[in-house]
Amino acid sequence: MLSDPAADAPDLAQVEATAPQPPVAPILPLDVNGLGLDLPGRAGVLADITFTLEGGGICVVLGPNGAGKTLLLKLCHGLVRPTRGSLRWSSGQGRNGVLRQQSMVLQRPVLLRRSVQENIDYALRLRGVDTVERPRRVDEALVLARLDHVARRPARALSGGEQQRVALARAWATRPEVLFLDEPSTHLDPVAARAVEEMITGICARGTTIVMTTHDLAQARRLADRILFLHRGRLLEQQAAGAFFAHPQCPEARAFLRGELLG
């Protein structure tokens, strides 16, 4: 069933983030220096990763399956602790303070067994958003996700694309400065994937910096402002998206762009 009637949905640009941003120090840029990760039995899953994440735009972590993209995201988000190297957010806040200004949508969105709007409200309650502000944020997120018509339905009864949009709406409702997305449209059909991509650009346009993984070249071309090319746990190339697609520097990236299988 196609439940994403893009034709009669409201224009995303009309949905404004009216909520005032609390005056907090920005956590970007993020300095990642010599980051490495060993897993039990698998040393060097990620090795010697160094980059700086500036605010704004969509940064795509590109690479074949098994390159370590998901783990890199989880490390940045704070779900996994690095074995080596450092992650330094610009603000001097502790780990909890930083966590409050970023969100992550996992590859398989985990929605709670309750209604769509309660799922979003739940995240806001955890972030300590007050009772006056919460319903407004929930409504804004529902409109951005084009899910206002299913607000009271059990979230887990929705289609895959709708569930992914609930997860995105829940993440955006907390007004993160950085939003990490792990393969946000991998399991979706093209129509549902397009709705998710529109939502991602909509969230980015409202001032949230997006860091997302994908192994889908076409999606990277459509969305990316910046590319981090990852292969076998190494960061082989980092460039502006236009330059990367026009003149990839390393042979692995050239092969990847030609659609060759990377072993």
Partner: peptide
């Protein structure tokens, strides 16, 4: 097993 990463990501404390 299913929820742990999501709940930690949302910033839930032990009691919640």
């Amino acid at each position: 097993g299913e929820y742990s990463e999501q709940l930690r990501s949302l910033g839930a404390g032990r009691v919640s």
